[in-house]
């Protein structure tokens, strides 16, 4: 049994019996470099966002202020977003690597927010170039207050959207080649915000058997 080697060089036994996997924890400053923060500055907006370690250097703290005034360029109609996104993992010679979460069915987050609604985005590897902007998203509601909040989001709930528009023909998220995970704030409430993340993990919820939460059959009228 011991000579079998599973994916990523780990023993096969470990791989097969694994029920939870911690993907990101923020226990040191070097772990923040795996993430990028962006705001609507890149389209000319005025939101600000910063990323740093939390008070006791073991959590990730994203803070800033949201401003939903659209830039005065005559074509942008909506603005006001801040995003935290994990970087694409790369192998040698800048080859793309992917996360394989197909053993798990639930995303597990331990967060502390300030009552604002966020969005969790997962982008997976696609084949055709017109699918480049495909993104699977779901909502993340924070309670606010001084206590940590454990959030479990089944992957089956994630819906397909492209360039911010929810798509008519939905498809379930394929978890074998996940490129990145992100958090987006865009609730049009101007002012300071903060989100503290303890860790991000995936787990296997045995009671959850749903494959996809939205209709896949052909609808009439076909929207």
């Amino acid at each position: 049994m011991e000579r079998w080697v599973g994916p990523e060089g780990r023993p096969l036994e470990v791989h097969m019996l694994e029920q939870t996997r911690v993907l990101w924890e923020f226990r040191g400053p070097e772990l923040l470099s795996e993430w990028t923060v962006t705001s609507d500055r890149e389209i000319g907006g005025r939101s600000e966002v910063y990323l740093k370690l939390g008070r006791n250097n073991s959590t990730c703290m994203m803070y800033g202020s949201l401003c939903s005034t659209p830039p005065r360029d005559g074509e942008t109609r909506y603005s006001g977003y801040c995003t935290l996104r994990s970087k694409q993992p790369l192998a040698s010679f800048d080859r793309k690597k992917h996360y394989d979460w197909s053993n798990f069915n639930t995303l597990y987050l331990r967060i502390r927010g300030d009552g604002r609604p966020w969005m969790v985005n997962i982008s997976a590897e696609t084949y055709f170039s017109h699918q480049r902007d495909d993104m699977y998203s779901y909502f993340l509601y924070t309670r606010g207050g001084p206590y940590w909040q454990d959030v479990k989001i089944p992957f089956s709930k994630f819906f397909l959207s492209s360039r911010g528009r929810i798509q008519d023909d939905q498809h379930e998220l394929w978890l074998d080649k996940v490129n990145s995970l992100g958090f987006t704030l865009g609730d049009k409430a101007d002012g300071p915000f903060q989100l503290e993340i303890d860790f991000i993990a995936v787990c296997n919820e045995h009671a959850h058997t749903e494959e996809f939460a939205y209709e896949l059959y052909k609808r009439n009228p076909e929207v």
């Binding site: 019996l17 939870t20 073991s58 787990c203």
Partner: peptide
């Protein structure tokens, strides 16, 4: 059973207790 370990392999974040709000 094998593979029944559902806990997460992370260090606990140490924080002071909240007494009232």
């Amino acid at each position: 059973d094998l593979g029944d370990d559902d806990s997460f392999d992370v260090d606990e974040v140490v924080e002071g207790a909240v007494y009232a709000m």
